[in-house]
Write a protein that binds this DNA or RNA. Sequence first.
DNA 1: ACATTTAACTAACACTTGTTAGTTTGGTGA
DNA 2: TCACCAAACTAACAAGTGTTAGTTAAATGT
Lengths: 189, 189
Amino acid sequence: MKSETRKDEIINTAAKLFKDKGYSAVTMRDLATAMGIKAASLYNHINSKQDILKEIIIDIAEAFTNGMSIIIASEVSNISKLKQVVALHVNITASNTNGMASLNNDWMHLEDQLDYYLKLRNEYENNFLKIIEEGISTAEIKQTNAEVIMFSMLSTLRSLYLWIPKKEDLNADDLANNLSEVLIEGINV
Amino acid sequence: MKSETRKDEIINTAAKLFKDKGYSAVTMRDLATAMGIKAASLYNHINSKQDILKEIIIDIAEAFTNGMSIIIASEVSNISKLKQVVALHVNITASNTNGMASLNNDWMHLEDQLDYYLKLRNEYENNFLKIIEEGISTAEIKQTNAEVIMFSMLSTLRSLYLWIPKKEDLNADDLANNLSEVLIEGINV
DNA sequence: ACATTTAACTAACACTTGTTAGTTTGGTGA
DNA sequence: TCACCAAACTAACAAGTGTTAGTTAAATGT
């Protein structure tokens, strides 16, 4: 149970500010004020503004990649896999709503790590699509455009960061079940 | 068929740039370069950077408000109303993808018009929710959490701006029908 | 008691930001 | 031909940007 380092505090505070105004509109002086220190002092803990963004986004992106590879490998129905994907999004988002805002809205401001991020995202979406396509071919899922289904599900799941903080009495399992019902049982045969 | 004014060209070019990098990350010099002129020349046509954002967003927001009030007033089933809402989003988004990006991602950078925008958005969401709740009470829609349904639908519809440009051979009616099927027939009893 | 570490500070830098003022250019209607 | 006008230009501004250098003060480990 290692306690939060000063660097972590800065990154978490930054994520909160980035959520409200976006990466570009938050200055190092804004961040310093929110921390109660001067801008120059931030550099005792972090290398650059860019580096903060990288740390916020890449950690989460890798969590999605890892979660997806476990789901892909599991020997269950494709509908079950989709439910696991929903739960994966709910859990990651619930544990880091602010960071999810940056991942969704500020990924294009990654510089060195942009290609890596896009690679992870593409692989994730390909795996997601493959689950749906297999579900269609095994008649678990209605014969509809697989891309439309993925687009619809992913849009909802990517917006969770806006919605979860409003439900202060959140039960992650309940939400995941509720969402799965709305998102999946509709496509169920 | 009034032709596009220079001001319109600037606003449309700005919307394109805002879509890629966000309002805050686009400078007046970026915009000028994209127009092939110098930054100071922009001010012969527009009042301020802020004003460009306002013109992009408020126009679209009012189009949604107007569309919704027509739907609300129509004497059809609630399911039909939801289908009309889907079509409304598809049509507005297809006719102004770039502007929709600003509306979704940069509304918080509105200054004078922020309150007005939020008022329109709240009214819109209240009307949306009311359709769903009435659909549930008349047993047109499954007995589920109305907010979860709205959240899911609205998330998908708000993400259309990312998706529509990728389908170059887009037929708006087909997409609206496809989406309605995925989004609505799932909730249908 | 002393060396080390952590985390803050002040001061300054080179550059970028949105915007204004005043001027020039090329075309259009009288 | 001449006045007009839209639309570009150059030059400059004050404020704000991320970041570096060098210093100080308090806590910690030996």
